[in-house]
């Protein structure tokens, strides 16, 4: 489901006497290559989707692609890398590689249209008025959970060794998670985090724990349907999470640390 991305912001609209930043020049040039077969020397196949990409852009940024292309495996000779991933995820990952950012925006989702939080993508302050639209060719709405998407992006970045994307996804997760401290989103986010990252990777796990501890009261409060965002069942279901939580709480309680812990009454 290839999408057209129309971007109206940026350098192209600058008055001619304002010289663009050379860094922008490079980014814009690379952005122009995104999804274009021109110069392409590597194909990424993802289910039914095919992405034409450029080794010189993807390989230096991702050890995974570098090794796939440099080694003596099938990929190196065929120039095709098959990824068993969600096509949308792959597309956004590639978007990041070309534009240093990725967009998750759902026009059908009123929440994201909110003026205070227009879009996970944060354009430069000057560009806040600019619109960004994702149009799917089949007309179907991009039907996914934004938070979950960022978590999976984090996991993918981790797996493919793309450091910048990992950091960006993490920032996005933090922001989204704060908004979704409800019974529907929170348990599944925690589950996703603990399932998609290895134990040594503390990035998202620490966020989950910190967020939990700083909003404990809110999370434990039952909503109108009698559901809590942090039900006991979740603790039982994901032992790693429970373990991390208790360690963190113990550390906070330890008197030497000198700050008053949260009240659990």
């Amino acid at each position: 489901m290839p999408k057209k991305i129309k971007r109206k912001y940026g350098l192209f609209n600058f008055p001619p006497d304002l010289k663009p930043d050379p860094g922008d020049e490079l980014v814009d040039a690379l952005t122009g290559l995104f999804q274009k077969p021109k110069y392409s020397d590597l194909t990424i196949i993802c289910g039914s989707h095919t992405f034409k990409v450029h080794r010189c852009i993807v390989c230096p940024r991702s050890d995974f692609f570098a090794r796939a292309c440099d080694g003596k495996f099938k990929e190196a000779s065929s120039g095709i890398v098959e990824l068993h991933e969600q096509p949308l995820l792959v597309e956004k990952m590639l978007e990041y590689l070309y534009t240093l950012d990725y967009t998750v925006c759902d026009q059908l989702n009123p929440v994201t249209e909110d003026s205070t939080k227009p879009c996970p993508i944060q354009p430069k302050p000057a560009d806040t008025d600019d619109n960004l639209t994702i149009v799917t060719t089949d007309g179907a709405s991009s039907d996914y959970d934004t938070l979950s998407f960022h978590i999976l992006m984090y996991s993918l970045a981790d797996r493919l060794f793309i450091r910048g994307l990992k950091a960006l996804a993490k920032v996005n997760v933090v922001r989204e998670l704060e908004q979704r401290l409800n019974a529907e989103c929170f348990p599944s986010a925690v589950t996703d985090i603990y399932n998609s990252t290895p134990p040594h990777d503390r990035g998202l796990r620490d966020i989950a724990v910190d967020t939990t501890l700083s909003h404990l009261a809110e999370l434990r409060r039952k909503d109108e349907s009698g559901q809590a965002a942090l039900p006991n069942s979740l603790l039982k279901q994901i032992p790693d999470y429970t373990y991390d939580l208790s360690v963190s709480m113990i550390n906070k309680r330890t008197p030497e640390w000198g700050f008053s812990a949260l009240d659990f009454s």
Binding site: R67, G71, K72, E82, L83
Partner: peptide, 8 residues
């Protein structure tokens, strides 16, 4: 190795 898929 040339018949193997790195990705796999």
């Amino acid at each position: 190795a040339s018949s193997l898929s790195f990705e796999e």
